[in-house]
Simulated assay, not measured.
Amino acid sequence: MTDYEKMKKAYQASSKIMEKRMEKERPKDLELLKKVKESSIIIVAGSYDKIELVLDLITVPYVLIHAYELDKIELNPDQMLIVNCPGSDISSQTLTKIKTYVENGGFLFTTDWALLHVLEKIFPEYVKYNQRPTADDCVRVEVVSKDNKFLKGLFEGDSDPIWWLESSSYPITILDKKKVKILVRSKEMENKYGEAPIVILFYYGEGIVLHMTSHYYLQRAELRTKRHQKSAKDYVMSEMAFSPKEAEDLEADLKDVTLGEAESAYSTTQFISNVIVEQQKKVKIRKKKKKEQKDKDSK
């Protein structure tokens, strides 16, 4: 199998792993994930990254649009806006609209080159591209904020995660170190390309901006250690505490998938699920407050 075929199979397996694990440990969050409506998530199509492929696997609906269509639609702060790499076709007028959307409570999620084409233009005082593009590479990563709600169920125990960097990924320079929070970093990336942040988060107005280096849909994994070369079945049983019966139920999905491939695919699958769940919780709270205020005003 090619690297792409291996990772496609790993993603298919990871979606099953994630659902089974959330069913056991976070049933209410899984229920919330399954109730997401198509209009809740707007994805701007990218030439290089395709987050929508991950959402397809976890059966989360979304609306996929082209950058020019952003000019024509109204952005609702209750929606999540995902901009795939590169984000270079978004007009300056629409960038201003996106900034207002975030300020009013929207959730903006961007990947890789959107750092330069979107974030650096909208939030120039927060982050910028360091002008040192990466090679096609894999780097070891460390979680900085293990208790962060977006990282639930990721990189636990003795995990030794490897992150794929697309050729010419854009390293993140953080300008406002007080406001921009690093969720995942890589010392190895810093040594090679000058900056450590892999996944960052910051608040702007009432909204949230989340950005990650490289592409969300990983197209290969690197098996550096004996642990990474173990089977995906070993992964779910030894590191996720799946019972032999639960692992057996996934036998066909896990076949020919290594631990390293499963871990890489699972990390992105679970991460996007966490992000969507937390956004849905935020929307529910916001709607509840609006209703309470409306009821109060009508009395």
Rank of each mutant, 00 (worst) to 15 (best):
D29H: 05
E31Y: 00
L32R: 06
K34P: 01
K34V: 00
K35D: 08
K35W: 07
K35Y: 04
K35R: 15
V36C: 00
K37E: 11
K37T: 03
K37F: 04
E38M: 07
I41F: 03
I41R: 03
I42R: 05
I42S: 04
I42T: 09
I42E: 05
I43T: 03
A45V: 08
A45W: 07
G46M: 05
G46K: 05
G46P: 09
Y48D: 09
Y48A: 13
Y48G: 09
D49Q: 05
D49M: 06
D49V: 01
D49E: 08
K50V: 12
I51M: 08
I51N: 03
E52L: 04
E52G: 03
L53P: 07
V54G: 06
V54Q: 10
L55K: 07
D56R: 13
D56E: 14
L57T: 10
I58F: 01
T59D: 08
P61W: 04
Y62D: 08
V63F: 09
V63H: 13
L64M: 15
I65S: 06
H66L: 11
H66C: 07
A67R: 05
A67D: 11
A67M: 07
E69V: 01
L70Y: 04
L70C: 07
D71V: 01
D71L: 02
K72F: 13
I73Y: 07
I73W: 08
P77I: 13
D78W: 01
Q79S: 14
Q79D: 12
L81Q: 02
I82R: 02
V83C: 04
V83N: 02
N84A: 00
C85E: 15
C85T: 15
G87I: 02
S88F: 03
D89A: 13
I90R: 12
I90V: 15
S91R: 09
S92W: 14
S92Q: 15
S92R: 15
Q93W: 10
T94N: 14
T94F: 12
L95Y: 07
L95K: 15
T96H: 11
I98R: 01
K99Y: 11
V102G: 09
V102W: 03
E103G: 10
N104I: 12
G105T: 14
G105P: 13
G105D: 14
G105I: 12
G106A: 05
L108Y: 12
L108H: 12
L108E: 10
F109I: 06
F109T: 02
T110H: 03
